[in-house]
């Protein structure tokens, strides 16, 4: 059910050209996916996705829209090549899932190997009940440090781009042709 809603939202995103609506719809999409994550037992992820997808990114998009205008112009040409690429990729993926273990199967390899260790040993080794936190901050704490760095890198990037006055609007003099 959720998935169907998601699919509908996706199609809506594709068609609508008023970007305000699209951003709102993207927020809805995020919330729906957060719902999906909850259903799939990924409560932490759902929480985060709701905060990020529906919260931060919506705010950022709205800010960007305020600056960049909110109407999307009609594409000038039929996007056949992208369509082809997308279909190809999709078919490849579907083909790939053919041999994938069935959804939700408890015997799937994913759930064994290291996952078992986390679930069985983490309380003993780390002492906190939320396994996700254990894995996030300890077993794979280094990934999280990388994640923190990514966020920091994004801040540096945004600062580099947006700090200071609006610069060099149209400055053909400073540019060189390459034709």
């Amino acid at each position: 059910m959720l998935l169907t809603l998601l699919a509908a939202t996706g199609l809506g995103l594709l068609r609508i050209r008023n970007l305000f609506a699209v951003v709102m719809l993207a927020g809805v999409y995020s919330l729906l996916s957060a719902g999906l994550f909850t259903v799939m037992d990924a409560v932490d992820v759902a929480f985060t996705e709701a905060a990020v997808g529906a919260g931060i990114s919506t705010v950022l998009f709205l800010g960007a829209l305020a600056l960049c205008g909110h109407h999307e112009s009609r594409p000038g040409h039929t996007p056949l090549l992208p369509l082809f690429v997308v279909c190809l990729t999709g078919i490849a993926l579907v083909y790939g899932t053919m041999d994938m273990p069935p959804f939700g199967g408890a015997d799937n390899p994913v759930h064994h190997h290291v996952a078992d260790h986390y679930l069985e040993e983490s309380y003993h080794e780390i002492g906190i009940p939320n396994v996700v936190t254990s894995v996030l901050a300890s077993y794979r704490g280094y990934d999280t440090m990388g994640e923190t760095t990514v966020v920091f890198a994004a801040a540096v990037g945004v600062m580099i781009l947006l700090i200071g006055a609006r610069t060099r609007r149209e400055r053909p003099g400073g540019e060189e042709g390459d034709g």
């Binding site: 799939m40 037992d41 990924a42 932490d44 992820v45 985060t48 996705e49 990020v52 997808g53 931060i56 990114s57 950022l60 998009f61 800010g63 960007a64 600056l67 960049c68 994913v110 759930h111 290291v114 996952a115 986390y118 679930l119 396994v131 996700v132 254990s134 894995v135 996030l136 794979r140 990934d143 999280t144 990388g146 994640e147 990514v150 966020v151 890198a153 994004a154 990037g157 945004v158 781009l161 947006l162």
Partner: peptide, 30 residues
């Protein structure tokens, strides 16, 4: 219990995603 590892990976990925988004939007503004 459901497998916690994908959750962790995706938490990281979500954060990476929003980081990319913010840089992309900043670029678009410029």
């Amino acid at each position: 219990y459901s497998n916690p590892l994908p959750h962790v990976l995706i938490l990281t990925a979500i954060v990476v995603g929003i980081a990319t988004t913010s840089v992309a939007l900043a670029l678009a503004i410029r």
